[in-house]
Design a protein around this nucleic acid. Sequence first.
DNA 1: ATGGTAGACAATCTA
Length: 264
Amino acid sequence: MHLATFNCNSIRTRVDRVVALLERHDVDVLALQETKCTDEQFPALPFELAGYEVAHVGHNQWNGVAVVSRVGIEDVQVGFPGQPGWGDPVAAEARALGATCGGVRVWSLYVPNGRSLADPHLLYKLDWLAALREAGARWLTEDPDAQIALMGDWNIAPTDEDVWSVDYYRGRTHTSPEERAAFAAVVDAGFEDVTRSHTPGPGTFTYWDYTQLAFPKRRGMRIDFCLGSPALAARVGDAFIDREERKGKGASDHAPVVVALTDT
DNA sequence: ATGGTAGACAATCTA
């Protein structure tokens, strides 16, 4: 079975490319982030014609996450327990969607960006990750054998290897000790980055800014991950980053990450 | 020259 995660940066703009990558990589379950549309606006038909079901949550032009599956979608859950909100009035954003697909509890996650180290949005990001850690720890307490895949855009580069320049990101978000600690806490709760050993760095990235020719200059970050529970991690046979998808006109600023699971 | 690119939506906001 193949799992994948992709920050598509607008599903309406890129639906044909996304369906094509499902077929190109024989993907069974795809976690999408930044769909940038409401549930009504989500273009489900192209996925259904390709044999997939879709679960989506989107409130407006920002955020939006989905799970796309051809191995069933059960127990769809919008948001995780304790997920902090944002805005005025404070409300949960469309940043987390869970669904059970082919026996795997898949979460499509779009971690808040943080914006800058002095911005309240960074505290929101840290709270959000702490709450996710608590929820994840509880899921594992309830069922230590659960196959859980926390997939998405984590907006954190966990190590210095995961950015093109340590100096460039000093004083910016994504590499601060606080953000890295928040990511490490999720790992400590029992979720392993299942992609890294199959996609070694340095210079291995999943995101490149649209500006300043960042992609051809190989100036990127590794911020998209699949964190697996022990039972899920034990099934991972391979993983890769589809860097080709970032090339050319009309690409997202992220590349998809694909994880191959062995059969149970 | 407060730049550069992309998307949603229609004056800015987000990344």
